[in-house]
Write a protein that binds this DNA or RNA. Sequence first.
DNA 1: TAGTCCGTCTTGAACGATCAAATCTTGAAA
DNA 2: TTTCAAGATTTGATCGTTCAAGACGGACTA
Lengths: 372, 372
Amino acid sequence: MAEKVTIADVARYANVSRQTVSNVLNSPEVVREETRRRVREAVRVLGYRASQAARQMRTGRSRLIAARIEPAQQDGINGSVFDRFLHGLTESAARAGYRVLLYTADDHDAELATFDDLLGVYVPDAFVLTSTDYGDPRAAWLLEQRIPFVTFGRPWGVPPDQKYPWVDVDGAAGTATATRHLLAAGHRRIAFLGWPEGSGVGDDRRSGWARTLAEAGIGPDELSELDHRTEDGVPEGAAAVTALLAAGRPVTAVVCVSDSLAIGALQAGGDVAVIGFDDTPVARAVGLTSVSQPLGEAAARCVALLTDMLDGDAARRRSHGDAAPPDDDTGAPANTSVNQGAGARGPSRTTTSGDSPAHVLLEPTLVHRRSA
Amino acid sequence: MAEKVTIADVARYANVSRQTVSNVLNSPEVVREETRRRVREAVRVLGYRASQAARQMRTGRSRLIAARIEPAQQDGINGSVFDRFLHGLTESAARAGYRVLLYTADDHDAELATFDDLLGVYVPDAFVLTSTDYGDPRAAWLLEQRIPFVTFGRPWGVPPDQKYPWVDVDGAAGTATATRHLLAAGHRRIAFLGWPEGSGVGDDRRSGWARTLAEAGIGPDELSELDHRTEDGVPEGAAAVTALLAAGRPVTAVVCVSDSLAIGALQAGGDVAVIGFDDTPVARAVGLTSVSQPLGEAAARCVALLTDMLDGDAARRRSHGDAAPPDDDTGAPANTSVNQGAGARGPSRTTTSGDSPAHVLLEPTLVHRRSA
DNA sequence: TAGTCCGTCTTGAACGATCAAATCTTGAAA
DNA sequence: TTTCAAGATTTGATCGTTCAAGACGGACTA
């Protein structure tokens, strides 16, 4: 257990005051070049790390980002999506000098209580919300408390006065790509296996399929005939496809709103091309073509939006000072290059219009496998 | 943003000193009944929460448990196992007044560096290590630094002078149960599809199968003929079963060391009963019988072992004091009933022999589905 | 020469809790 | 009544950092 080195130790070693050491770490531009070097050397030699607790006490920032780890879902197939996101979040946050604090909650009310609890004790600097949907009270609560947060998932049916930053993947674009792929392969009778109306994510994904088929000249009547809705689940998917196959004109391909349904569709047998959504491990295992969300990228964007809000002022202030990249590896506030790469990298649309918060819409990709 | 209430505010409101408030929260037994009541009321009315940062500064404890979130594995099938464990860990930790802090690391060296980093800045009170295997340097490092930790996974090939608490699931018992199930169903030619020798987990699981078949009168020659080793993966599993079926005497059932291999085995076709390991979502989706680890229980045991080490002294001291269950909902050190239910609940063996650290070995269960 | 400003560095206070030791209360024994 | 110990409560110091304000020297201006 290394005896802890304090800022006073460093100051003594470098023959300066505590505050100067602090300045070297946090606002290097106000310190003379030579002093800076001396202090940095002392930091290196003594192996100094800033104590997060002490810093938090003075500044009120914890450098923690809270995220919820979701309970395993019904069949657990889609759970892995969130886990991959969480992994990316942890990595990106670490790069920006933040850590991810986990919490659980069974429902929205419990989650609000947990917010309150966390804020009272650990005081995370920000929250990342996932699985947003209609009637979600969490964003409103956080807005009211003025706690910074980002959602992974668009605001669905949120009053227009509630504005906040978000990152999402363009589900409609994903299903559109999937549908185009099937059209190009010669299919005409392409069904959509979706969730019951009323889910933001589900309706969005359906729209991409519908739009693409409409553009290909499929009329509204045929479209609604091809549009099948059911609860999520493997057996549900199997039943749905069985029904579709038994119906009048045969369906030759199915675009599914989830891999669960798609797996079911495959199991139903029959000569049907199937495309799933989310590219879960199951899809890989059974050779299911699926729409893949760029989860690592999404997580990185979430962190970028958060650091904009959290370190924004500091970073902007710093960028006026001229020299010396503050390459602190001492646990001092990391200076993420704000909006780092958030511009024109990869297929995505970032909007930062005026005073309303930024949001990012990412494009998913289609992963081709045996099933279509 | 609720204006923060400090211990001084509570003291003023209750007409006592700061220290008395602190005592009510941390050592209630030294405070007179009536004062205690008055302070508790003040805490309630003002909505006081102890600041973790301030507390950590004085006591050195962060009430954080660090755990690594693993990168998605090759095919991601087994990844979900860890995620379920992590979920349980977060829940159990919260119940004990701790939070889970995530980190990532690509290899052991990077992980050691991250340990160092975390300990320098956030100073988690303990670590939970997963995926332990031969030559794992992490435990030794933490032991040397005298940082409390638990591993989920037995110490494989660890020098006998390195003792530390662990929790694990009895893999051999799992494969034994699976094998017995197949024997009971009339199978005699039961192969084992395992990983190459040298993996602690893999060899353990193999041993359960081997032992059971031996007990059933299968000779060593036939046993080694039935013992098949390959890298993990769906295609690998398919190839292995194809080979087994092509061989001389036909195999009628396969016990697999992982669901990945089992899925492959199923895909190979042929009339073979298949049992996997880990009961991943994929297994559920495709109807694969699989050995299920009690991951929530395992996580709870990990937390129990940790709180024994961390709050042990405090909890023991407290349990001598007579009355007043310190029902603090104020963020004060939670008083977990030590070893709560860690005794004779469920099928498991807990060992706390003398001075060596406790460990827990849990029994997995077989989840029956179509495949066997 | 004095005054002002700027760049650089230092000093004291504060964040909110707990520890250690001092002080005040109370009640029983002498 | 005095004495003393145990019980209950308070006081002062401290954890390690950053903020706010001040000190110091030199350059530049008036």
